[in-house]
């Protein structure tokens, strides 16, 4: 319980940590139609391409400070020697970041989807995919940021982005199936499967990495 209170109090006083990424997401979604011709009827085709890349980038921004601040001021040190299991603390941290950034972005993304494609069905179907995807992204980027903890987030992104590219292919396929009214539940199941593995493995790996950093 204490760790949840800790993260929330921290983020309440540091709105750039969670509000910033959400605003960047909105700005990207607003800015991209300006770059193509307004009358272009294919806008909804490129919409999803931009949506996934925007989610990817924003999740990358969101995790930038997830461990660095606590590492620098010694809070991670205290967590590491406390009785509470360290992977649990890390998974709670990631969950709270997802709750504050991933969930709002999923809602906003679905709303934009409604606005761009005028299809309520599509917007409703894309919402769970956005939720799952943002959680996967935030986990993997947290892993990257833990690796490059003191070396800046560019390095972390560089090494983890290649891991996520196959996922982007799956997301593209899922959108096509929804568009063609095919059964897309298979993709949701696949994403859920990936998530359920990641949700246990990543906190374990991150705790190992951070312990190495603390040495």
């Amino acid at each position: 319980m204490n760790i949840i209170k800790f993260e929330l109090l921290k983020l309440r006083n540091k709105s750039r940590g969670w509000l910033g990424p959400i605003l960047v997401f909105i700005l990207i979604m607003v800015a991209f139609p300006l770059t193509v011709e307004i009358s272009n009827k294919d806008l909804d085709q490129s919409f999803f391409a931009v949506l996934w890349i925007a989610v990817l980038l924003v999740m990358m921004l969101a995790t930038e400070d997830i461990f660095l601040e606590d590492f620098n001021d010694g809070s991670l040190e205290q967590f590491a020697i406390s009785d509470i299991s360290f992977p649990y603390i890390i998974s709670v941290k990631i969950f709270i970041y997802w709750l504050l950034i991933g969930v709002p972005i999923s809602i906003i993304g679905s709303l934009f989807c409604l606005g761009f494609t005028n299809s309520g069905n599509l917007a409703i179907n894309i919402f769970p995919i956005l939720l799952i995807t943002s959680y996967i992204f935030i986990n993997v980027f947290s892993f990257g940021n833990a690796l490059s903890l003191t070396k800046g987030s560019v390095l972390g992104t560089l090494v983890t982005l290649p891991l996520l590219l196959p996922l982007l292919i799956v997301l593209g396929k899922a959108v096509i199936s929804i568009n063609l009214n095919l059964n897309y539940l298979g993709f949701v199941a696949l994403l859920l499967g990936v998530l359920s593995i990641i949700i246990f493995l990543i906190p374990l790996i991150i705790s190992y990495i951070i312990r190495a950093h603390l040495e």
Binding site: K5, F6, L9, K10, N13, K14, N72, D73, G74, S75, E77, Q78, I81, S82, D83
Partner: peptide, 23 residues
Amino acid sequence: QICFLGHKNALKQYLTVEENLSL
């Protein structure tokens, strides 16, 4: 559990003293 105080004091600069104590 061990009580350890190192060079890093595990306090948040942008919070008030009271909030830090509650953390």
